[in-house]
Amino acid sequence: MAKQKTIDNRQRAIGDERQSSASFIQAIGAIVWKDLRAEFRSWELISSMLVFSLLVILIFNFALELDVKTRQSVTAGVLWATFAFAGTLGLNRSMAIEKDRGCLDGLLLAPVDRSVIYFGKFFSNLAFMLIVEAIVLPVYSVLYNTNLFQPGLLLVILLGSIGYTSIGTLLAAMSVQTRTRDILLPILLFPVVFAVLLAAVKASGGLLDNSTFADVSFSINLLIAYDVIFVAASFMLFDSIVEE
């Protein structure tokens, strides 16, 4: 009888856990959904990131004289520099919206774990970044007559974006609460995220240079390790950023 009871309790505990993890994911989904819906109504964030990216590529075109020969060696660098610059724009905006309209306080009042808010913002920022990248890549391919749609490269871009937005979301949440918020984010973010960008550029450069997947697997593994470290660190530190 007693044994039956402990088993029942254990099952209930497992059930609770399952339910709480389900509600955890649900809550994250709700935040992501809110952000995406708001964005698809106004398009202000994605459109500004997109136009900005295209302008950056245009500037690089003339700054580096992207003829066929140089293009071979600098495409990876140009792409990542573009994503990094456009990324700060998006991160800043996405957090500023929350702060300005008092939305962040509302989110903080919600009876969910703080990490839910972090992951919600992280996934929606990641989604914005991936959408922009999904448009920039074909445009770049057409403009410069190079095929960027290689599965390996897409994987690298995904991994690099994860590392970039994970730490970027945390730092953006920090920088919007300061007086100098618009200029502060890139200054905080770039030195810290340097390792991710470096590994991403190395891996993409290798893949575009017709190296095999095995050649760049070291950089890719490194990228995965950085993603894990940065997501874990941001997840643990987010609490101290938003507490009032």
């Binding site: 730490i167 945390l170 730092l171 920090m174 300061t178 905080l188 810290v192 530190l237 101290s240 950023i241």
Partner: peptide, 11 residues
């Protein structure tokens, strides 16, 4: 202090 500590730790 809080933000400084977080950023120094990330750095």
């Amino acid at each position: 202090a809080r933000f400084g500590a977080v950023y120094a730790l990330i750095g």
